[in-house]
Amino acid sequence: MSRFVRLGETDRPIITVHVDGKPVDALEGDTLMVALLSSGSMLRQSEFGPEKRAGFCLMGACQDCWVWTESGDRLRACSTLAASGQQIVTSQPGASWSNHA
């Protein structure tokens, strides 16, 4: 179930983004946030509460919409354009630098 509803500008070329390993269709010019929330309903898990988050301000101010690439880079979904071939994960990857002490 999608969270966002498209209200126009729908005849843009389709691109495919991978979210948690699954292909997701988006439109060229979508932000990552719109790409993710037009096919799903959440962006990430809150660190300090049980709830999922889906962004808040859409203008790069609240920092609630950070997602990750498979290689562990961080992207602010509301201000990053979706691009074909992106591999996005919506749960914070475990630290690759974790220590074993």
Binding site: V5, T31, V34, L58
Partner: peptide, 25 residues
């Protein structure tokens, strides 16, 4: 207000203006 689907008013406008989407159904 922490639940997904809560947005700032300005955010709701940005969704529409710059992405042509509504923040919900």
């Amino acid at each position: 207000w922490q639940f997904a689907g809560s947005y700032s008013l300005g955010g709701a406008q940005v969704a529409l203006k710059s992405q042509a989407v509504s923040i919900g159904h």
